[in-house]
Amino acid sequence: MGFRTDISERQRRFGDELRRLRNSAGLSSAEIGDVLGMKSPAVSHTEAGRLGLNLERLDLWLDTCGAHDPEYRAGLIAMCKSNGKGWWTEYRPHVLPAALDLAEFEAAATGFSSYQTHLIPGLLQTKAYSEVIHEYAESKVEFRRRRQHVISVEDAPNFHAVIHEAALHMTYGGPGVMRDQLNHLIEMARLPHVAIQILPFDCAVYASTDTAFMVMHGPHSRLDTVLLENPHRSTFLGDPEGVAAFRRKFDRIKGLALPPLDAASSGPSPAFRDSWGMIQHVRYKLLGR
């Protein structure tokens, strides 16, 4: 089998997991290679994602390193067996590799925890809002719309979004586009698996809320992946300590945000602020613009 020239984030993450397991077991590349019938360089290339691994050797690797948790093993087996192909494959000529990696991770996720600072989360955007964000690049807009199916299908995974109030006031595309976007948030919140909270401007506690991120939950917490978004490139984070830090950060931000949007409510109590009231307040302000 030849070396891979283009390594996907899934392949890279699979190799990282194998390396962490080997290191935790206190084994060298040569020692695990002896068990698997592989030379040390082949082990290193496998851990770097440049070489694949058959299921028989994967089972041996997991047994030798003491990885017996059934959910964790099943998750690694699925990563090993995947050929990386899906609906996103047809968009390969039109979007960046990081977008393809994101779609693949989303398709395998069991849940999402998203925090956004100045934008509505991609999975909750209307077409018109996405068009403005992507400067009317048709293929990119269509790609985002296809990504959104992951939370709109039957038995979709839970999606919990905390959105900074700043994102509600950014009138990208004009007041009409933003009104429709806010209406869409209300409609999405009617779905039983979608929770939306707003972090208000007047939050008096600093919680390091400057970075947008999304935790994509795997079949086991050890297989969670964090997407860090910035204007230049997307970064995927998979090391356990880093992922755990972002899970704690999301829990903290969630605790500071207004209570979740309840679209079934007739309105917030005058003495009680919630995310529904915040969205409606901004929406009514836009009606006059």
Rank of each mutant, 00 (worst) to 15 (best):
Y115C: 06
F143L: 13
V150C: 05
I133P: 07
R146N: 07
E131I: 03
E138L: 01
T110A: 04
V153W: 01
T117L: 14
V141R: 01
E104M: 05
H134P: 00
S152Q: 10
P121W: 12
P121Y: 13
K140C: 10
S113H: 11
V153M: 08
E131Q: 12
R145S: 07
G122P: 08
L102S: 04
E104C: 02
F105Q: 08
H149M: 11
T126R: 11
A108P: 08
A109Q: 05
T117W: 11
T110K: 08
E138G: 00
V150N: 09
L119M: 09
H134K: 13
E135G: 03
A103P: 11
F105R: 02
L123I: 00
S130G: 13
V150T: 12
G122Q: 11
Q148E: 00
A108M: 12
L119S: 07
H118Q: 14
R145W: 00
R147S: 00
G122L: 14
A128W: 00
R144E: 07
L123E: 02
E138D: 03
V150D: 08
T126W: 14
E142S: 15
S114K: 03
A137R: 11
L124V: 11
R147D: 02
L124N: 08
S114C: 10
V153Y: 00
K140Q: 14
H149Q: 14
Y115E: 11
S152P: 01
R147W: 00
E154S: 15
F143A: 15
S139Q: 12
Y129N: 05
E138T: 05
F143N: 13
V141G: 03
I151Q: 03
P121A: 15
S139D: 12
Y136S: 07
V141E: 02
G111E: 14
H118C: 09
R144S: 08
F112L: 04
L123W: 02
R147A: 01
S139E: 13
Y136I: 04
F112K: 03
I133K: 04
A109C: 04
R146D: 07
S114A: 12
H149N: 12
Y115P: 06
V153E: 09
E106K: 10
F143E: 12
A107L: 04
E106Q: 14
A128S: 07
T126N: 08
A137E: 10
R147F: 00
D155P: 05
Q125A: 09
H134I: 00
E138V: 05
V150K: 05
T126I: 13
V141D: 04
Y115Q: 08
